[in-house]
Amino acid sequence: MEVPFAFLVGVLFASGLYLMMQRNLLRFVFGLLLLSGAVNVLIFTAGRLSRGVPPIIPEGLAAPAGPVANALPQAVVLTAIVIGFGLIVFTLVLVLRVYERLGTVMTEELGPALVRSPDAREEP
């Protein structure tokens, strides 16, 4: 089962990185989304895929009865998804603010937009 997933990770990485190299910041964010998805699938696959039962210990037992799915990658991926979600939402809000304040989301126009802006020399 792991081999097709390895290819899937490769495809996701490639498309994510391709999008991240675009000049449009929004595409960069989408690339980031794909990339974080790719990493999550990678971790999940790294924990070995099995059609196991959920890793829950039945009542009255101290250990699971039979073989169960590996719970650690699931916990790790869940945490990574949450973190990735937060980071991407923040990045989206940042891109939105950049668009409002600088009037562009194209990376090569950001610098010139900053120089042109009336408060270019504004100091904190």
């Binding site: 937060g86 939402v89 923040f90 989206l92 939105l96």
Partner: peptide, 13 residues
């Protein structure tokens, strides 16, 4: 709290 903070931030643009 976190999800709503983000949502409100996006909503108020």
């Amino acid at each position: 709290g976190a999800v709503l903070t983000m949502l409100f931030a996006l909503e108020q643009g």
